[in-house]
Structure formats: structure tokens, C-alpha cells
Design a protein around this nucleic acid. Structure first.
Lengths: 203, 203
DNA sequence: CCACAACGTTGCCTAGTGTGCAAAGTTTCC
DNA sequence: GGAAACTTTGCACACTAGGCAACGTTGTGG
């Protein structure tokens, strides 16, 4: 997790993180709409132009944490043993997401609040999941070719996409439900329940 | 389908449609990035300001057709008999989507194919589906209370969300696969296959 | 240690966007 | 026919994304 590369790399990572934290902080305080890119850059002590070198817009900066969590998930997925089926590998990797969330970072909580309250962010979050889905599909297809290879490539493509979409829908459902009622249910349990619901025969 | 209301309403609908068609046409010709809102408004013979009265941005205008199709789907779903289970009602409503596409001009569909390859649009489509998902969840919850009412509201919430997400993931998968290979497979068959894949036990 | 290459940061600039406002044009309704 | 309700439009303004080139900082080979 800590490649500890060159000074250059570390500085870049620090700037990226500073920008991310700046936008979360400002958005939590004033609402995302009232936050300008200028203000974010100021708050992170870089120029307006530098912000654009790191993120395309403030939503992307805001969801940077989300993105890294999904990247961790993908890495975990790729590290699963080759002999696991796609669904096995997925369900056994999802713990990574939960753990990442379980580091009850106050920044993360503030971020979730903002994301939930601001509808335009939901769109960007979906956009993010869209790219994740593409990568999931690729990984799933590879695994399928080792396990359930069928003679029909179209059927395989459908299967891989349905699988990826269902998995993401289930985790999304779990997180939504978990956020919507801040009682003592553990996120791990909710995610688990959602994945089992998805895996069972529907209806 | 034709409420045939006042002149005012009809004019507004015409303008909205003109803007939608303008953006599709221009995007198919030059690529979405090379299309400005100004150009779209010009092409539809309205001012740039008027464009903003109808759509927030060009992507929204481009996906207007998609949105109306989903609205038809929701209407069809609500019209299903009350005694059908959620999944039954969903799978029996989905024909509406396919029919709506089938009504379209083949030239139009070719344009859609071109435009839809643009990756940034996938994100906006996801955002659209996000709002649809909300409504699906509401409808599914109502049906579940008539059929599979459980004592655990959290489990019900999870189930409804997983169901909605899976359904949308399956139709999305079908449409993606269908678009990606412009052979003679009928969309109806692909959608059917995807929904059956989703309904079967995963793994 | 130094010079040079590679890379990051910044300011400037331009085309484009989204939206409030008020004036002018339409449609509706009595 | 004329007032009320609504739509379109132009204008203004603050903001955004990204190309470009100058300037700093970091890495590297002699």
C-alpha cells in the first residue's frame, strides 16, 4: 500500500490528497454548489491551474476516496486464486471495501453525508461505477473462460455483464440501506445480506 | 401516447424534440465533444438560452429519448396487475422498452449506435438509470408488501434495491451487448436472455 | 558537484457553460 | 378584447476546462 517511491511521486500523492480533503471539507461546510474550484485550490495551497492537472472537476476530486476504494477492490479481485469462480472471487474480495470503510475516518463520514444530500453527486458516483463495471467485466470474462466456458460468446458476454452489474447493484444497495439507517447494523452484515439476496434465485 | 393537450404543451413538446434530434444529428456527424450548445440551439432554431430552459446540458438532451423510454417502462410497470410479483411485473413490462426501440427509424438507430460509443455518455446513462432505480425501488416495495411481506424491513429494503439494480443491470447488459455487435440478433432475444441469466441462480 | 533532462507548477488566455433578470412575444381564459 | 399566465430571448456575470509557454523542482550521469 505504500510504494514509497520517489520524492516526486510522494509530493504528487500529497497534493492529490490535499485537494481531495479540501473539497470534502469545503463541501461539507458550505454545500458543494457553493464551492468553487478556486476556493478548493486555495484551500490546498496550489493554483487553480494545478487543480485541473489532478482532477477534471470538483466532483471527481470529491469522489477520489471512493475511486481508490474501488481500485483496492479490483486489486483484491485480481489477487484471488485463479480457481475461484467469478462470483466466489467477487464475494470474497468485497471485504476489502468494508474494511476500507470501517476505518471510521471522519472525513469519510462527512463525504458520505455530502454525497447523499447532493443529488448531482449520485450521478458522478454512478459514472465512477460505470468504469469500475467495465473492469469487472474484463476480470469476470477471464475467470469464466477458466470455469464456465461456453460455446456462445454472446451468452458469455451477457453473463459477465449481468454478474458485474448485479454485484455492484448489491453493494450499492447495501451501502444505501446502511447509510439510510444509522443504527447499529454493521456494514459487513448488510453487505453480506445483500450479496446473498443477489445470489439466491430471484423471486 | 398523444395527450393532445393545449397548443402551448404541443409547442413545448415539439421544441424539446427538435433539440433532442438536433443534438443527436450533430453528435453523430461531428462527435459529441465537437458540438456546442450554441450549435444545437441554432440547429433547432431556438436561442441558446431556450436550450437551457429545456435541458441542463447536451448529454441530457442526447439521452432524452432514453429517458422517455424509461418513463414508459415505469408507466407499464405500474399498470401491471397487482397480483404479479415484482420480478414478474418487471420482466413483463420490459417489452415496452424493446418495442419503443423497434418503432424507431433504422437510420436513427444507426446514429444512436455511433453516439452511444462515446464513453462519457455511458456515465450520463448511468446517472439516468440511478433516478429510474429510485422509482423502481418504490414500486417494487409496494408489490413486495402484497406478496412477500417479511417482518424485517431492512431485509425488504435490501431485497427491493437488489431487485431493481439487478433488473437494470440486466437490461443495460443486453443493450450494450446488442449495440456492440450489429449482427442480426434481435434486441428482444438478447434482453430475454439477459433477464433469464439474472433470474437464475448466480454461480 | 554540476549541468542537463525530465517533470510539475503557475499565470495567462480563450471558448464554452449555466443561470438570474427583465423585456418582448404567445397562448389562455374570462 | 384584454388581462393574466406563460415562454422565448438577449444580456450579463461568474465559473470552468484546457492549450501554451515560462519558470521551479526533482532526478541522473559524468
Amino acid at each position: 500500500m505504500e510504494p514509497a517511491t520517489s520524492l516526486r511521486e510522494r509530493k504528487k500523492a500529497a497534493t492529490r490528497l490535499a485537494l481531495h480533503r479540501a473539497v470534502v471539507e469545503l463541501a461539507a461546510a458550505k454545500g458543494l454548489d457553493a464551492v468553487t474550484v478556486d476556493a478548493v485550490a486555495d484551500h490546498a495551497n496550489v493554483s487553480r491551474r494545478t487543480f485541473s492537472n489532478y482532477f477534471a472537476n470538483k466532483e471527481e476530486a470529491l469522489l477520489y476516496g471512493e475511486r481508490t476504494r474501488y481500485e483496492r477492490l479490483l486489486a483484491a479481485l485480481r489477487a484471488r486464486p485463479e480457481n475461484e469462480t467469478p462470483w466466489q472471487a467477487l464475494t470474497r474480495s468485497v471485504g476489502i471495501l468494508v474494511e476500507a470503510l470501517a476505518e471510521l475516518d471522519p472525513v469519510w463520514i462527512a463525504q458520505l453525508r455530502v454525497v447523499r444530500r447532493h443529488p448531482s453527486l449520485a450521478a458522478h458516483q454512478m459514472a465512477l461505477q460505470c468504469t469500475v463495471e467495465q473492469e469487472l467485466v474484463g476480470e469476470i470474462l477471464e475467470r469464466m473462460q477458466r470455469h464456465q466456458a461456453s460455446s456462445d460468446p454472446v451468452a458469455d458476454a451477457i453473463r459477465a455483464r449481468v454478474l458485474a452489474g448485479t454485484f455492484l447493484a448489491a453493494t450499492r444497495a447495501a451501502i444505501t440501506v446502511w447509510i439510510n439507517q444509522q443504527e447499529s447494523l454493521s456494514l459487513a452484515d448488510v453487505v453480506d445480506a445483500a450479496l446473498r439476496t443477489a445470489a439466491e434465485r430471484l423471486r
